[in-house]
Simulated scan of single mutants.
Amino acid sequence: MSDVNAQFVQAQEDVQQLTERPGNLTLLRLYALFKQATEGDVHGDKPGFTDIVGKYKYDAWAALKGTAEDTAKTQYVELVESLKSGAAS
């Protein structure tokens, strides 16, 4: 397992142990980075207007279109580290 993959797996565990729940925008960023890192570019139909949460998730993931898997993993790790240190919310 590469160093980036190991850090990504550790960050997934660390994010579950945060003492404070991140804000909604940060949660969307975590979601989008995770999806980009694990599944690549967004796929499937965009949810309709009745599924507000699904629409926001889709849009956040779609904004990362073209981002390399390792880049998304690195950004995810960096975001989790900033949450652990209290620099982000």
Rank of each mutant, 00 (worst) to 15 (best):
V80R: 13
T74V: 08
G48F: 08
E13T: 01
G54Q: 11
K84R: 10
D41L: 11
T67G: 05
A60N: 06
A72C: 00
G48E: 14
T38P: 00
K35D: 01
K35M: 02
T67F: 01
A37V: 08
L79E: 04
V53K: 13
E81L: 06
Q75W: 05
K65F: 08
A60P: 11
G66P: 05
Y58D: 11
G23S: 02
A72Y: 02
R21M: 07
Q16I: 05
K55E: 14
L79W: 08
K46E: 14
K55V: 01
L64V: 14
Y31H: 09
K73Q: 05
T19C: 03
Q12F: 00
T26P: 04
S85C: 01
K35C: 08
Q12G: 07
Y58L: 03
V53Q: 14
I52S: 08
G54R: 14
T50D: 12
Y56R: 15
Y56H: 12
R29S: 06
I52M: 15
K35E: 08
D14Q: 06
L27Q: 14
A32Y: 00
N24R: 09
R29K: 11
T26L: 08
L83N: 10
E81V: 00
L27G: 14
L30S: 11
L18K: 06
K84C: 08
G23K: 11
A68M: 05
E20P: 10
L83K: 12
H43A: 11
L30E: 06
L64A: 02
R29C: 02
E13P: 07
E78M: 10
V80N: 04
Q16Y: 02
S85Q: 13
E20Q: 02
E78H: 03
L83P: 09
L27F: 15
L18P: 01
